[in-house]
Nucleic acid binder design. Sequence first.
DNA 1: ATGAAAGCGCTAACAA
DNA 2: TTGTTAGCGCTTTCAT
Lengths: 334, 334
Amino acid sequence: MNIYDISKQAGVSIATVSRVLNGSDKVSPSTREKVLQVIEQNSYTPNAFARSLGLNSMHTVGILCADSSDVYLASAIYYLERELRQNSYASMLCCTGYHLEEKKKYLQLLLSRNVDALFFAGSNFVEDTEKNNAYLFEAAGKVPVFILNGYLAGDRIYSVLCDDRLAVNEMTESLFRRGSHAPVYLYRSLSYSGRKKIAGFREACIKNGITDADKRIFASPVSVHETAAFLDALEKEGLSFDACVTSDDELAVGAVKFALSHGRRIPDEFQVTGYNNSLISTCSTPEITTVDNRVEFMCTTAVSLLMQALDGKNIPARTVFSGDIIQRETTNVF
Amino acid sequence: MNIYDISKQAGVSIATVSRVLNGSDKVSPSTREKVLQVIEQNSYTPNAFARSLGLNSMHTVGILCADSSDVYLASAIYYLERELRQNSYASMLCCTGYHLEEKKKYLQLLLSRNVDALFFAGSNFVEDTEKNNAYLFEAAGKVPVFILNGYLAGDRIYSVLCDDRLAVNEMTESLFRRGSHAPVYLYRSLSYSGRKKIAGFREACIKNGITDADKRIFASPVSVHETAAFLDALEKEGLSFDACVTSDDELAVGAVKFALSHGRRIPDEFQVTGYNNSLISTCSTPEITTVDNRVEFMCTTAVSLLMQALDGKNIPARTVFSGDIIQRETTNVF
DNA sequence: ATGAAAGCGCTAACAA
DNA sequence: TTGTTAGCGCTTTCAT
């Protein structure tokens, strides 16, 4: 059943059917009624591919993320998809993992579907050399590219991000004010935001007279138990620390487990801070003080920017907003 | 740049270019080489819409779920997308929420993109009346439909699910063996699997001499704190209970928080069990005994079934496998 | 092995 | 207001 069948049954031309389908106002009410009836009777739906071919768009965007089962990325995807859908765009999801080659490959999968725009959720997409970012520039050559939680300057590349450096800096500063003398910092990756966070921690340390700041910054293994074991090893090696600032809530859970298993009272004897304000920060007991980096806001902003861009409007290449410290039970009350 | 441009530059017909593009073996090596070179030079990529129009498929499937930020559904999406991608299918994601009308509406969004198949992740899609499932039958009229964690009999509807009734039954039985005399059951929804789980709990209770089983089954509010408060209220109302079986790990976290805040020692004085074996079951301290319902296996199986179906093979309408109890710290060692 | 040409089902410019 | 028709860019059948 195609537009010709409908036009025949309704006794009109395909142009008229097309007009009805697309809500044109240049159709008489009676004709419209008749056509609509035939469409209904046959439960006809226009062929998306033919339509796309004419319009050169399927009203679909691609969302790339390293791992959609990561709590933080999962929420980003949720908000992106919701906003896009509300603007009647469909979302193609693609989980790329963390390796450059895979990212490139799966980007092609999306590009080969002729999506109207691309969202890269998570700062892990911004590599540290121009050459390794070539794939992003290439993508931006075809469609507008939005980077969430990362920044890259380039034509048709739009970044929406939280000021992670500032947030971690403030969090660390607050830890000093709350009595910490020897914090350590745990991170998972050296992505764009990963590096910013580290900078924020380091600055706060230096400002507060910690001379060996760089020796207090560690890449941690990711699973909760491994993180706890990692801190355990650190302590056994002779490093003394009374607080643990982390780059995400999962690492913070590991730090809490470390403290609990060592009989270190939280927050009196040991303070912990997370990042992302994800569900797991409240699943821990004690609940974790964390940074809300406003994923929802980030996503709605990004989609709204896209809609404006598609509307031909000029949009900012970079949108940054500040995070928010959520005080819970793993840090002292000031 | 289209297939005509390439054909001109290469001095061949579009048919030949098309053959090269699709890896036909009826092209001489020299011609192939020449065409490939021109394609490379112009970094030409064929238009997906035109291609789809001819083939009537874009090699894309739709994934529907209520809420992709739910840890359990997020992992299901992750595995589905991964498997599909490995079979070079792209995934369109659509989060429908829990209301029937929205489900129907967003299903249309996907169907209007002419996807090749549909995955419904989560048993909340199977409603309890034939009429309310009409949308699923309708969808199955257009493309093969896969239901994960739910069951519905119908043409071209394929269900892949864990035996939730059995798993909860065994979990509850084990609780009795581990010294519980008065368990309660907390659930979030009465979806297909929700009802099965309840049945499993009830059966175990009856078998173990609990006469008021139905009065020990409750719909709980969802957030961790609300769940804890709910149990608190239950206790204040005079209900006595020494164990809490739940329909998912989040509820279990709430139950743990309840026990912790009431000074009830886990697991000696109070036992808790979750469901899904999600990340949050290990983020809690003590860590939660839970059921692994094998999401990954479920998803890889479902995708593999789809591939076979697209291959013209006959596949089973219903695939059920058993869950696995993961013993952790919230239940006594037998 | 290669090419010509007929679709695929729609949109939109142009005519009437 | 309605109809005619030329694309959109590809795949594929049928000749050669």
